[in-house]
Design a protein around this nucleic acid. Structure first.
Lengths: 220, 220
DNA sequence: TAGATTGTTAATCGATTAACAATC
DNA sequence: TAGATTGTTAATCGATTAACAATC
């Protein structure tokens, strides 16, 4: 048991596989909406935008949920992927920073549809605190710890300017959240037991610009 | 020359390295702002949140921009990384879908700071078309091709609901953009010459939920 | 049974890490 | 020169892909 962070259930699911599971779940939901009840690795892979071999390999880490010669039951597989992702337990989210982005996130219906409840909004700006956004009253930043404790939020979202990100991050960690999703373009320092995912839209554009260059300027 | 998409310049930069370059650029800008003029792979790696060996390996694909025993000139290295990413040419961006998210993106100052000009906003909703957002007048969706041609946009951002994403994507491709950044939770089909990057915030939360589960429910 | 499709194995490929010779 | 730090090589590691035996 010197192995770092390994669940007791089955063999570990590799990170690259975990990162693709939400896409499979999305594709399964789309198929279900279209009335499809049984699917194949070929069909599901196409819907998710990956190769069929990769899909089967990924699913094999979760267990054996298909039937040879037949395929996968859409509803059953979706349920199992949901279980593995931990979506059968309600996940509560607190959003810090209620600017345009925070507004967008607080109002986004896609969260509820995919297993998340936004339970609190927090901001430092006195002009924003107390206003109603997406059905919630914005709380002051210095109440963060209390708000997290009171709501049972386990995931924090940072939607503040980059300059404030590390302080907000520290406060979220101190308040006891286990995972952080940050939109601020800055590397965050966190203890090892806190999971961080970063979305940086300008970085995404820069990666697109790289390929754009290769395409437009072949020689120089 | 049967090799697919390979630039004529130097040896290809691996995708995983390209994806980290924006982070290095960010870290370099932070160091420069702090008055640092020379840095080491150790210092820069720490600022960017990666290991020093990985940083040096990544930079080695771009060329030799450091000096042994001394380190890297911050300004010079930032310039070179910018060149490789294609940021010395102005990149023009059109945003489709001006809801909360589109608003947030249109108003985001971080784009301009990092080499991008938002040159056009487009929406289908008649109530939104004609309004002023972030200093730009929102154009009707059926004008997309004309707007892209007139502004010279080469990158399209999709900030619409998932149901509209594929149609918007097709229209952007038809209009001639070379890269697409989508926030809609749906796999997009595009021709091979168009580069797509997808940001799905609910998927990010689901990945966090996976680790949350491992932590909170060790046994079952 | 014959046909279809999974789950798994093995081979390939790419990415990361560590170590160190080159060199400032 | 002695100390520092890069750039590169080689070793390790993990991820992807292809092929096919198992089996419905």
């Amino acid at each position: 048991m010197t192995q770092v962070r390994r669940s007791a259930q089955q063999a570990a699911v590799p990170p690259s596989t975990v990162a693709r599971l939400p896409g499979y779940l999305r594709a399964l939901d789309e198929l279900a909406s279209a009335g499809v009840t049984t699917t194949s690795s070929d069909e599901l892979a196409r819907a998710a935008g990956v190769g069929p071999a990769q899909l089967r390999k990924d699913l094999s880490y979760l267990g054996s949920y298909g039937r040879r010669g037949v395929g996968y039951d859409v509803a059953h597989l979706a349920e199992q992927v949901g279980v593995v992702l931990g979506l059968r337990v309600e996940r509560r989210v607190v959003i810090v920073g209620i600017g345009y982005l925070g507004h967008a996130l607080a109002s986004y219906s896609g969260f509820a549809e995919r297993g998340f409840a936004v339970v609190a909004l927090v901001d430092v700006d006195e002009a924003v605190v107390g206003t109603l956004v997406g059905g919630l009253v914005v709380e002051p930043f210095d109440e963060l710890a209390r708000v997290v404790a009171a709501t049972g939020a386990t995931i924090g979202v940072i939607a503040t300017p980059a300059a404030a990100a590390q302080d907000v991050c520290d406060a979220l960690v101190a308040a006891g959240v286990g995972g952080i999703l940050t939109f601020a373009p800055r590397a965050l320092r966190t203890p090892a037991h806190v999971d961080v995912r970063a979305v940086d839209v300008a970085s995404e554009l820069q990666i697109l610009a790289f390929h754009d260059t290769r395409r437009q300027v072949p020689g120089a």
